[in-house]
Amino acid sequence: MSTNNPRFPRELNATFSKTLRSKVSAYFKNNNTNRNANGAMVTKTIVMLSLFFVPLIILSTGIISSVWLLFLAYLIAGLGMSGIGMGIMHDAIHGSYSKNKKLNTLLGYSFNLIGANDAVWKVQHNFLHHTFTNIEHADDDINAPFFLRFSPHAKHYWLHRFQHIYVWFFYGISTLSWVTAKDFIRLKRYKKMGFFNKKHEFSKVLMAMIGWKLLYYSYALLLPMIMIPLAWWIILLAFVSMHFVTGLLVSTVFQVAHIMPDNEFPLPGTKGNMSDDWYSHQFNTTTNFAPKSRFLSWMIGGLNFQIEHHILPDVCHVHYKNLTKIVSETAAEYGMQYNVKKNFGQAIVAHTKMLRLLGRPQLAIN
Rank of each mutant, 00 (worst) to 15 (best):
S151V: 07
N36E: 00
H130Q: 14
D183F: 01
L72S: 14
R149L: 09
L187A: 14
S251L: 05
K188V: 08
Y216G: 12
I58H: 08
T15H: 15
T105Y: 06
N339K: 04
T45H: 09
K155R: 10
I84T: 05
P268D: 08
K341M: 03
I114Q: 05
S50I: 01
S17Q: 11
I365P: 04
Y338F: 15
E201K: 09
V47P: 02
A181H: 09
H164Y: 15
K122H: 13
Q255K: 03
M41I: 02
T287N: 04
V256W: 00
T330F: 07
A73I: 04
G301W: 01
F8V: 06
P145M: 15
G269S: 06
I234S: 06
S50F: 01
A350D: 00
A144W: 00
S297G: 11
L107A: 05
H317S: 07
D140I: 11
G87F: 00
G87L: 05
Y171W: 14
R10N: 14
A181W: 07
I46N: 06
S275G: 06
R186V: 01
I234W: 12
N343W: 03
L358F: 14
W158R: 13
A73D: 01
I63A: 07
N4K: 14
A290W: 04
R189Q: 14
I93V: 12
L358W: 02
V250F: 04
T15I: 00
L59D: 10
N322I: 01
M209H: 02
I210Q: 05
V240N: 07
Q362I: 12
L206H: 04
P291F: 09
L214Y: 12
M299T: 02
K99P: 10
Y217Q: 05
D277P: 15
K198P: 08
W178V: 10
D140V: 13
Y166P: 10
T270V: 12
F132Y: 15
L20P: 03
S2P: 03
E333C: 10
F202I: 10
R161P: 07
S98P: 01
F28C: 06
L357V: 03
M299L: 12
F239N: 08
H243A: 12
K101Q: 11
N32M: 13
K198E: 15
V340E: 10
F147R: 03
R294I: 07
A231P: 01
Y97C: 09
S241L: 11
N34K: 08
I165D: 05
L296F: 13
V318W: 03
T45P: 07
L323N: 00
T330A: 13
M260F: 08
F71W: 11
T270P: 11
L230K: 14
V24K: 00
F28S: 08
G211Q: 08
F265Q: 04
M81H: 09
L363D: 02
I185D: 14
A116V: 06
W298M: 09
F53Q: 10
K341P: 04
L72A: 14
G211I: 02
T45M: 06
I88F: 11
F150R: 02
T180Y: 00
A220N: 04
S218A: 13
S110H: 09
Q124L: 05
V340A: 12
G194I: 11
V340F: 05
Y338E: 11
A364V: 04
G78M: 02
P291R: 02
